[in-house]
Nucleic acid binder design. Sequence first.
DNA 1: TTTGCTCATGGGCAATTACTCGTTAAACGG
DNA 2: CCGTTTAACGAGTAATTGCCCATGAGCAAA
Lengths: 317, 317
Amino acid sequence: MAKRSDTQGRLDDAARAGWLYYVAGRTQDEIAAAMSISRQSAQRLVSLAVAERLIKVRLDHPIAACLELAEALRKKYDLKHVEVVPSDPAGSSSTVGIAEAGAAEIERWLKRPDPIVIAVGTGRTLKAAVDQLPPMECPQHRIVSLTGNIGPDGSAAFYNVIFSMADAIKARHFPMPLPVLCSSAEERETLHDQALVRSTLELGAQADVTFVGIGELGPDGPLCVDGFLGKEEMQKLVREGAAGEICGWVYDNQGKLLANSINDRVASVPIPSRETSSVIGLALGRKKFQAISAALKGNIINGVITDEATAEQLLGR
Amino acid sequence: MAKRSDTQGRLDDAARAGWLYYVAGRTQDEIAAAMSISRQSAQRLVSLAVAERLIKVRLDHPIAACLELAEALRKKYDLKHVEVVPSDPAGSSSTVGIAEAGAAEIERWLKRPDPIVIAVGTGRTLKAAVDQLPPMECPQHRIVSLTGNIGPDGSAAFYNVIFSMADAIKARHFPMPLPVLCSSAEERETLHDQALVRSTLELGAQADVTFVGIGELGPDGPLCVDGFLGKEEMQKLVREGAAGEICGWVYDNQGKLLANSINDRVASVPIPSRETSSVIGLALGRKKFQAISAALKGNIINGVITDEATAEQLLGR
DNA sequence: TTTGCTCATGGGCAATTACTCGTTAAACGG
DNA sequence: CCGTTTAACGAGTAATTGCCCATGAGCAAA
């Protein structure tokens, strides 16, 4: 073994040790014995092989791509939590996979023994996720709704998810006995001054984790479809640069809340602090791309659950 | 997380855990926390991902192919030690690489602090390996030659390697003061009865490790070239099914020693037990393929150092 | 030749991981 | 519906691995 101090020889040894360790599955002790070096040296060679990128690991499973996309998204937007689910090739439903994944994440939070406050927004996607929740007993937690549960016509809004959720998991729940949009900023002030509403507002601010849907704008967006906004108002919003909405809060394509008459009238609880809690958006699909992208850019949310295709769009791939 | 008992979901989890562990480099504790499972379960998932071949490791280094060939050879012939060196594309010399690798392996044994007995055969390949040995101080070991050092013309044989080796490593050495071939079986008995020879024979039987060259037969094989056998005798041997020789012991293509007049006259020490010691053959090249293959099949050697091309031949690739 | 620097080495120790065992829960078959 | 079988789980423990540090060899500049 004439000269082993040269770099090439050392890399050869590193490759050999790395191969024995990762491919052949030997222990570092065995490698050390086989190469007549100390175990510590074997360990150094293995870690050198890793550091020099000689060994490459890949995951042969559909989920692998998702995890990579998730990691890329997490880095790009500095997120606390990202989940990317495989895209349904048929791609018809907007809740395939994401609902299960969202439910799984909600369930992870619910499993915690220490009491937490979970805030939820509204929307079809979130509803689908909550519908996937298994029956549980979580009396230690509290669920608070960020949005009002009174529809534009006075009836209960369909996609207010808090009741389904509370039903499934047996937790104390705090709905917002309000409409989604008030008629004016003054009315909102009055309504928010009510004792019941005020405590809900305070609870919302304490949320440990928040799950929200992300709504796109335009005549087919949920705000219009569910009758909260007329088409004219919607067109005006879009002209003013609105890109999406979360719990009724409308933001532009940089994720900045618009300073306009709509946001002055939104009765929802302010979205909990992204500094102290996780705010996780559930959304996928080409139609919602702009809304998701803007929400991420503006740090309105610091977590996202989406699908492969949308994740790739968000990464500009 | 509706159903997690199904195999698909479990594999997904395994993939996720495997990805987090191997790609993201998280610890199993972190994975367990992230997936809301116990650390033991995380470990099970990671090991499941490995068992199910979900994670694949690849080594980007020329030596990887050699290591794979070595592992395959080791399994095919149940060998104790295999080393495969990259083939020299020019392929002219029969000692390129193999000499260095052989020297490295000899050196590994020499580095051992506990006293061992090293037996050596003869041949050009082995000589080249020994010439690569760095100066060492190994007074604790003993080297014994398996073959005589007297050539057919009464001079010292060229490729008896024990003197070069002893010179380089300063160890006690035990040459065989004999020819390679005796004139008859009776002469061999007489010679082996000498006190000096007898102790060498006994020492050879105790060898902890043996390094031998592998000779091909035919008019260009070492036995003929070095003048130990005439062409007529060689032709007779080949007709009788001889496929190769190690230390003068001639065997057929199944690695069985031939029961003929040549083996009765070979003065060499019997090849040490493959049950209790390592017998490592050094050889490469198309010409020696048959000899190597037969030696491996017949378990005459239980270790081999060769090159990529020869290894592929041996594996029938 | 001496001095100072760098780097590989091996010992020791703490962290991490793998395995075994007894228990529990779920699936299966009668 | 009940007993059997299988698989998964958690706890505990042994094995393995990662990392820090003191040491000494190799080497270049003084």
